[in-house]
Amino acid sequence: MLTFAKVTLGYNGRHVLEDINLVVNKGDFIGLVGPNGAGKSTLMKAMLGLVKPRAGSISWRPDIPKIGYVPQSEHIDPIWPMRVRDVLHLTLCSLERPHFFHKKEHSRVRQVMEMIAIESLANRTLDTLSGGELQRVLLARALIIEPDVLFLDEPTAAMDLVATRKFLSMISDLHRDHGITVVIVTHDLQSLAHRAEYLGIIANGKLYFDQTDTMLTSGNLTEIYGQPMTVRKVDGRALIWADEITEKAGFRHV
């Protein structure tokens, strides 16, 4: 579906990621993780066609599919006086017909609001939503176009633990029930460990990519992150922690 062949990405003469080889197949659930500034968002932008490769090639086969994009909630400017239903309606209208003031509301808007359980938010404006609610609205907006691929850029960054868990469960359900290909970027490795089928870890300007079970070993993570990491399986789920984050920083994690 999507192939990266020896791709180099960067800005202003600086290479952020080099020699990226990656294949995304239909129906995959891929997690991309890495520390801040590692190039996760750059990689996602390249997948979305927003950043051109400096070397190598990025290709979609057979054609570019319908792409649903869920940005970080901070990306949305709350000054825009939009109700939740307007946001969904607008996205649909901008693709199907450009007019706004037609009276009949598309049944797809109601359908997606039910699917994501945001009917109660329909008449709320964006500035009145919590981080978790806004993220669900952005997910609904991405789903309204019935995408083949869903790209999520750090969707849980503004959420607490419970909201994060609920949101990622929703993504897993969508992937399982509707067969949507999912590519999710996050810095939270733990939350993706038992959900993503494939895991890409971005570190030191490189992408380490394989099946999640293969990637998640203490040895692999220690090598990639350059510090002691431990992975333990508990009830079939991986628990991951850094043994010593750094003694220079003056604290230990066990």
Binding site: Y69, W80, S94, H99, F100
Partner: peptide, 23 residues
Amino acid sequence: FRLFWSRIVLTGFDPVMSRTLGI
């Protein structure tokens, strides 16, 4: 604006998402 309201609003509201939609 009558003809292209949704596109003019959407591209102002979220230009990145608009680009991913091919707008």
